[in-house]
Amino acid sequence: MKSNSVSATRHSRTTHLALVFVGVCALVFASAPLWAGANILRLLTDFFLYLSLACLWNFLVGYAGLVSIGQQAFVGLGAYGLFTLSRYTGLNPLVSVLIASVVVAALSIPFAALLFRLKGAYFAISSWVLAEVLRLTAQFIPQIGGSSGMSLPIEAARALGAQPAVRFTTIYLAAFIALLMILSGIYFTLQSRTGLALTAIRDNELAARSNGVNANRTKLIVYVLTAFGTAATGGLIFLQRLRVTPDSAFSISDWTALVIFMVVIGGVGTFEGPIIGAVLFFLLRGTLADFGPFYMISLGAVAILIMIYNPRGLWGHVRDRWHLQLLPLNFRILSKQDS
């Protein structure tokens, strides 16, 4: 075969269709405040925020191989950052969320210096210990309310809108924009040099290192970006709730366990997986959440079964079976006959 008869492309008819679908979804969601009631807006806000957490966790774990079970650390820091800034500076909450996220991203660098000393599952547990340290420390600091936590000052809430309905719309749009930024941030990082380095590290860390990929630096970039996004999401989650306590902000079950289940069920290490997982999760939540512990037991069981029988999750299964990809992320090799 001559070299000019082969080409590589990220695009296919499916990816074009998928992009159209994504565009339609974006329009529908962007216009939701015009057509949706308060309940639907709140549900969608929740969905966007959880989807953000799921995509970020997947970015960290599925692409950089940093298996963290301590992302609640960043949710909590983002939340406390927002509440502290709101109480002591009177800034607009959305500005506070942004500032807090930048500070948390900076903080994540020394965290990484500490946690990166351990590998694999030991990294996982120590990331959890770090989150526990933050939770226990928050209980100690009276200026941020100690173990009883604090409420968002009324003025801060008012800055988002005088009526609750306006406030919901503002938060909804903020969550939607945050999600879009997180998704596109991950997408463009994966297409950049860093993304190539990540793929190389994932395929063979030793070989990647010997070819000049700085694995630790690449992982650090992903860790810091994820910390930034997770803190922003955490800020928005608690902006919606108006109240924060150490136990709720640094909760492993709310901000990490559920997120892990979503991603594992959808497909770790695929771009589409967490989206599928989050959609499924929200579709099932309405019907199953009342079962409480049984709901968690079945999620745990499903996650175990998927990890054993199909570690790439639902989306990984679909993709391998039908050679499908919705988003133009990987190159496909085409010969002239095909194209």
Partner: peptide, 9 residues
């Protein structure tokens, strides 16, 4: 990933 996530589950 599998051993960590299975034991987490």
């Amino acid at each position: 990933l599998p051993p960590i996530l299975v034991s987490f589950g």
